[in-house]
């Protein structure tokens, strides 16, 4: 599903390049649950962002579902992204001005899904994750775990094939964290959603079926 080849990412500071990623090559198959670990500043988030097409490498190539991502036109890449990828953040990043319902609905708006269909899809999700009662609350009225749950539901609403999670449990206590992890596991096993998560926690990493270590921008084998 994901083929990263010889990915480099660097910034120029004082005319000398500072490397974030150094020659990373990685293949992730569909249905995998991969955990990326490594100390702060090792390039985990950058790698995740590149996979999520939010960032571009300085060098290297990226094939997603057989398509050469960085040779696509901006518009095609956006389409690819909208269709297949969902993001989950450490800080949840819910939109404060929108209710739970509206937050979950937003990606569908951007995909141009019709109103009736949207209603049905959001309704299904609310049911499935048992948050119907919270649909009219604003994010500030929810606990951290609930907010992250909404974040995950929002990522799932467009039925993505890949979920990219950047320290999804970083701001949660251990019980809440575990619930999210179990949810990820379930999605991975039952629905075949590919999951790539960045995490500091060995315990959370163990929920996945593959772990890679990143150190100074290089994958450690």
């Amino acid at each position: 599903m994901i083929q990263l080849q010889n990915i480099f990412k660097w910034y120029n500071t004082a005319n000398r390049p500072t490397f974030i990623l150094k020659d990373v090559s990685l293949t992730i198959d569909e249905g995998a649950f991969l955990s990326i670990m490594g100390p702060s500043g090792s390039g985990k988030t950058t790698l995740l962002n590149i996979m999520g097409m939010l960032d571009q490498p300085s060098e290297g190539s990226y094939h997603f579902m057989g398509q050469d991502v960085f040779n696509l036109k901006e518009k095609q890449r956006k389409e690819l992204y909208k269709q297949y990828i969902g993001f989950v953040f450490q800080a949840y990043h819910l939109l404060d001005e929108l209710t739970v319902y509206e937050n979950i609905e937003t990606p569908l708006l951007y995909q141009g899904v019709k109103s009736a269909e949207r209603k049905a899809m959001v309704g299904d999700m609310l049911d499935r994750f048992r948050i119907v009662g919270k649909k009219d609350l604003f994010p500030s009225q929810l606990s951290g775990g609930q907010q992250q749950l909404v974040g995950v539901v929002r990522a799932l609403i467009s039925k993505p094939k890949l979920i990219l999670a950047d320290e999804p449990t970083g701001n949660l206590n251990s019980t809440q964290g575990e619930e999210i992890m179990q949810l990820f596991q379930q999605l991975n096993k039952e629905e075949g959603v590919t999951i790539v998560q960045v995490t500091h926690s060995e315990k959370n990493a163990a929920f996945g079926n593959r772990i890679i270590q990143l150190l100074d921008g290089q994958v450690q084998d």
């Binding site: 999520g52 956006k78 993001f87 990043h93 939109l95 990606p107 951007y110 467009s158």
Partner: peptide
């Protein structure tokens, strides 16, 4: 800015 970032991650085009 955060709102803009989140919306873009959720698939918003710039024109939206």
């Amino acid at each position: 800015s955060r709102e803009v970032g989140v919306r873009k991650v959720l698939g918003a085009e710039r024109s939206f």
